[in-house]
Nucleic acid binder design. Structure first.
Lengths: 331, 331
DNA sequence: TTGTACGCGTTATCAA
DNA sequence: TTGATAACGCGTACAA
């Protein structure tokens, strides 16, 4: 049972010689085609077993024009969003007999281009990616060139491209509504500095219409950013009694800043996050947040990709998955 | 710029025709070999550019016997250990021009066998895996068959196999020592039920020799397990003033159980975890723990794999990386 | 400096 | 029910 591609490795030809039939016949048996007697079938299978024959998927991919692989491209593998998404992708891919390549772009457009180029050279049959901001043209071009592509958390429309995302506008409204329903009257939001990421703000603002005045602080989308934002907020609006955070990481930072400022949560200030990352149930107080079912998002991505691979003309363009509120202790 | 393997895709032959040279010449230029004039070089490169030629790595791999891919096999992609390790592997692989396949085994021996079989069919040049418990024979067989293999967190020795792990015995001693130095006298450990995972216990027991009496509670390696363990511990040994946990997840569970029992941390009971997962700095109180540099572990794994791939005879067998104490608030 | 011819392991075509 | 033989796209002796 030597390594594929190394001398001594078993090929169709070895099996054929052993059994005394042609290569083509062995190929037929191995691929469950028709056109051979039951007798030869079992003899071939025996030889396959005893010789430890294993099909060379490189050779198969070369001639079939499909490698049986798909790639998942993330920005950072350490992004809290990644693991569950990858798990969903991996499981669904596995059920479809697809093998997964993984790469990361460091959220860098140039690097993303390099990565995609390499992946295409490896003849992946499809692509699932977290696009780096500002690369819509690149991604659209890739999809247009015939490589079936699914963009996650984007809302781009183009032939050969499907965008799978969550209903984050709705999530922002639900979160804000929860705060309002909890009797909060001065509700601030800590948001992202990137202008592409304003959907949550829209939901927050819309839900607040006629109820209160929006207060938005824009910072880095990190725990440190959350701390900075809350400090600024507390200085300018000492009377805030609720905070809606762009994501859980920022919410965790907010929790810390509030504790340091001597404000109790949720007593003095309620906090709602977004994403429901693993961390959120373990912080103190446990974080109330908007849940994104990342496992499902991953499965959906692969399923969309799969139908896209089978039918290049297919193009629902945009798939939006529902989100839900998870009430814990912080609000 | 059509898709690889689809009709209309550009090959070496198309470039050759365009330029009016032979395939061989184009191949030389593309692979940075020698033996062509500067004039033809630039003409070839121009054609490569204008035609959008991209090498087909399937074909190249088929003939060279090496695909340029390596696989990372995890138990679960959602394991808190995975992301940083994968990041290290990914980055180092990238620097070496290797492309990464990823798969997970659900910690199931049968599934691991299937996954490895599939990966071998895809002709990966090397393997990095978190072996499922009890599969030493399988893994050794894979390595012996000629597929360079690196096992993470295992201590298996065999030809063609390198085990990369952390000095967890030392980590356990350091953790225990820290508690002793902090003046703790009744130090318990919450550990794993699996008998393969007793190295930390050994370090704990050895460090306690002549200082105190070991108290070990064995449970599931989860946050829930940590809760269960502490409840049992508190019932049987009400006077414990320190807990050393098998890993951070269990330590977080312990933190919760202690809070529920009305014990302050670190006032009444000090807690030390193991692994330094991302979560540990965000819980309250922030967790003192043993740091494993997973990014480095990943890089080391790839580097070992790389030398193994270049030289099948290479075999240091066991690489053990140092760990360190991270002091935060819980101890 | 350049080109020819073969083989990598597989599937696809067509004839037997 | 079977089997020659030609691709797939590329690297590599060997020759020119």
């Amino acid at each position: 049972v030597a390594q594929l591609g190394t001398p001594g490795n078993t090929t169709l030809r070895d099996v054929a010689e052993q059994v005394g039939v042609s290569i083509r016949t062995v190929s037929r048996v191995v691929n469950n085609e028709t056109g051979f007697s039951e007798a030869t079938r079992s003899r071939v299978l025996d030889a396959v077993e005893s010789l430890g024959y294993r099909p060379n998927l490189l050779a198969r991919g070369l001639i079939k024009g499909r490698s049986g692989t798909v790639a998942l491209v993330a920005t950072e593998l350490t992004d809290p969003f990644f693991p569950e998404l990858a798990e969903g992708v991996q499981n669904a891919a596995n059920e479809l007999g697809l093998t997964l390549l993984v790469a990361s772009t460091a959220n860098n457009a140039a690097r993303q281009a390099t990565v995609l180029e390499s992946l295409r050279s490896h003849a992946v049959d499809g692509l699932i990616l977290f696009p780096t901001a500002g690369t819509e043209r690149d991604v659209v071009a890739v999809a247009a060139s015939g490589l079936p592509t699914v963009a996650i958390d984007a809302r781009w429309k183009a032939p050969g491209l499907v965008s799978v995302t969550s209903d984050i506008y709705d999530g922002a409204r639900i979160a804000t509504r929860h705060l309002v329903d909890g009797g909060r009257t001065c509700i601030a939001m800590i948001s992202s500095v990137f202008s592409e990421q304003r959907t949550r703000e829209a939901g927050y603002v819309d839900e607040l219409t006629g109820v209160g005045h929006p207060i938005i602080e824009r910072v880095d989308v990190t725990a440190a950013g959350g701390i900075t934002a809350v400090e600024a907020l507390l200085a300018r609006h000492p009377n805030i009694d609720a905070i809606f955070a762009y994501n859980d990481l920022m919410a965790v930072g907010a929790l810390k800043a509030l504790r340091d400022a001597g404000r109790s949560v949720p007593g003095d200030v309620a906090v709602v996050g977004f994403d429901n990352i693993g961390l959120s149930e373990f912080v103190t107080p446990a974080l109330t947040t908007i849940r994104i079912d990342r496992e499902r998002l991953g499965r959906e991505a692969i399923n969309q990709l799969s139908t896209l691979m089978d039918n290049q003309a297919y193009s629902p363009e945009l798939v939006e998955l529902p989100v839900s509120l998870v009430v814990r202790e912080s609000a």
